[in-house]
Write a protein that binds this DNA or RNA. Structure first.
Lengths: 145, 145
DNA sequence: CCTTGACCCTCCAGTAACTGGAAGCCCCAT
DNA sequence: ATGGGGCTTCCAGTTACTGGAGGGTCAAGG
């Protein structure tokens, strides 16, 4: 199976699949013409990766999960630990985002949004003093693309 | 004022301030020895930037907001539009993350987390078929550091 | 006057996880 | 044989910084 079909089957872009090979998450065979040759097991792994990524697992998490997945004797506790850590990270991100949403939605509501220059949003951003500080991003600025 | 004091006053790391100069968000003066010389207006801008970033505005948003902030005749509608767009993006991220949290917390609860190899988390990740697919990340994989 | 240590400077590289594009084979159908 | 799509590799760019090397500057203490 060529990369185009692997892409269709797994739902991942071909570029992403090549990248995953690059970082050795998958190791497809090669045909004599140099084309990647995907086995069913590769498709299965790619699908697994797509789902794990969609659940917020990092690439390195995925690497661990794949290893655990392939190790029939692994303890479910190992998997649960990784999943639990992610759960905590996701929950922290949710609460940070909720704080931001609340602050921002108050500001948007307070702003007339017309041709006048008065704008509570900018006023708030330029206020001086500690007490007016908006919340800091907890520990991961990458939350904001 | 040197960069160390500017950092203390604005709450931003010196590295970040240099970076902001690099991308021309601020343009501090220079002393004869080559050191950056920050004015009060620079500190004010840096503080503004710190708050806007903490509210989830991108650097390019910040650039627009700074321009609007310095333009006394701008319409508040322009500011509100930018803020409103961010609000929508933040809300979408919240709902994506909530979906992930729910799925993941069900899986973690269902997993015994002991020495046995049976693990519903891995089972779910490796299930075949469309109906078992977990949600896709909406439009911004960077949500996950 | 010299040294020490805290600052400051620039430049390069790396981060996460891809994505876009160029240059160039390969394969199949007409 | 030619055209179009698919495949290959490699390089660069994205976001918003962060870390570190290598070296200049300044103020205080001996």
């Amino acid at each position: 199976m060529n990369i185009g079909d692997a892409s269709t089957r797994s739902g991942l872009p071909a570029k992403t699949i090549r990248y995953y090979e690059d970082i050795e998450l998958i190791l497809p065979l090669r045909d004599s013409n140099g084309y990647r040759a995907f086995r069913e097991s590769d498709i299965h792994k790619l699908t697994f990766l797509g789902r794990a990524r969609a659940l917020g697992f990092s690439i390195e998490d995925c690497r661990s999960l794949l290893a655990l997945w392939e190790d029939k004797d692994r303890a479910s506790a190992d998997v649960r630990r990784i999943a639990g850590e992610n759960l905590r990270i996701i929950e922290a991100k949710i609460s940070d985002l909720i704080d931001m949403r609340d602050t921002l939605s108050h500001l948007v509501e307070a702003c007339a949004g017309d041709q006048r220059p008065d704008c509570p949003i900018l006023d708030r951003l330029s206020e001086l003093g500690e007490d007016t500080k908006v919340g800091q991003i907890a520990d991961d600025p990458k939350v904001f693309g």
